[in-house]
Design a protein around this nucleic acid. Sequence first.
DNA 1: GAGTGGTCTAGACCACGCA
DNA 2: GCGTGGTCTAGACCACTCT
Lengths: 239, 239
Amino acid sequence: MTLTLHKLPHYRKLYEMLRKQILDGVYTEGDILPSENELCAIHKLTRPTVRHALDTLVNEGFIRKHQGKGSIVHKLPKGIGILSIAGTTTALGERNQRSEIIVRPIVKAWDEPFMFKLSDTEIDSGCVYMERIRFFNDSPIFYDINYIPNINLPRFTSRSFENRSLFDILRKTYQIEIKGGEQKIRAIEAFDAIASYLSVKPGHPVLHLERKFDTNRQGFYIYSSIYCNTEEQAVYGLF
Amino acid sequence: MTLTLHKLPHYRKLYEMLRKQILDGVYTEGDILPSENELCAIHKLTRPTVRHALDTLVNEGFIRKHQGKGSIVHKLPKGIGILSIAGTTTALGERNQRSEIIVRPIVKAWDEPFMFKLSDTEIDSGCVYMERIRFFNDSPIFYDINYIPNINLPRFTSRSFENRSLFDILRKTYQIEIKGGEQKIRAIEAFDAIASYLSVKPGHPVLHLERKFDTNRQGFYIYSSIYCNTEEQAVYGLF
DNA sequence: GAGTGGTCTAGACCACGCA
DNA sequence: GCGTGGTCTAGACCACTCT
């Protein structure tokens, strides 16, 4: 579980460390983190750097800050945190999660019409396309269709994606990091294919998310269309 | 349209100014804002302060920053940005919006069971309850139920809410600011009341959001249950 | 009053995009 | 090479919470 390289900025390293400690239960709901001044002293950093790390944790919902009191660990969401998706680093290691490939990655033209506006470069390059089902506690919760521009991704289609995060592979193999994104959300009736994949009856309401991810590569975006069964677990988000 | 008071921090004033200029079309999609150093010179501020303002704009999706290029104004979402709700200030002035009160504010006990865990203080106080429909372009899009703890809110139930934001009143009358929050999202079948309010047929899929807002008052949260018709317009969010 | 987070200054060096 | 944003230091003062 050693981190890839130590070229991360200081605030990022502190962020990763505190985040891991919260996820590992070193700090649990309601605990107060060391104060900013203590963190400065411990890690030999200055307050703006420490605050940057804490601000990131606040944005991702791990802690809340209260003036005069301290940084308090927030309760972890019970649902599935797909709306925030921790745009920054390693995706949150959801428990009891596995995925099943429905359509292995293939190179093809973009669907027409496409859910987001594409640049000429994207259109000319075509996309790597794949379909997956993701399970939580052995129930199919997500059916997602992914579109990745076919630009400078050697041997991408021959890689294995079973039980590995798509974003993990992009990060580790191609140094592509997700920096943020936008999404459209609708409630729709499951049509036959969706109903079958998600084990619901046709016409059952499901969540439909259309997402566009920003990356650290200029002009390089990743697109996903996700159908989500919210019967048992709600989808969870912050704002 | 003068701002209430000038006691805002510097980064906040710069943020409000740039935000207003973007919304007013002074800068439009693709435009590059003045560089950080230019903003420093113009407003007599230092870079961390300017960067704080820009970071806030990034978090709310108004701009994207690109190293070596600048801060670029992002396209404004076409849908309804309820997932982010601009936790910080004046809610985004949606065009062609009006609301209709279904149940005027009344004091009552909390619904049982409640969608979020309540503290003893909250339970003992009861809540101010109200129901509203919100229209966009004359179509009923949101039906929302609001619960506000009945703690130190003199004359709240006698106020008029027509065409005024609930949060505006809380901010201006009681100095209560929304600082963030969390939400659960599901796709459900509209039951009869919902279907009638949102002008859809019973069983039609609608979005159901259960929200808990943090405020600047310690231990004071606001709760909403929102049903949303996503037939015409998608709900829009960032991450 | 002591400690906490919130705001702010005045510098510095680095990495990236572009001409 | 220049200007951009990204990171970082070393201080300062204020507002808030708790005791």
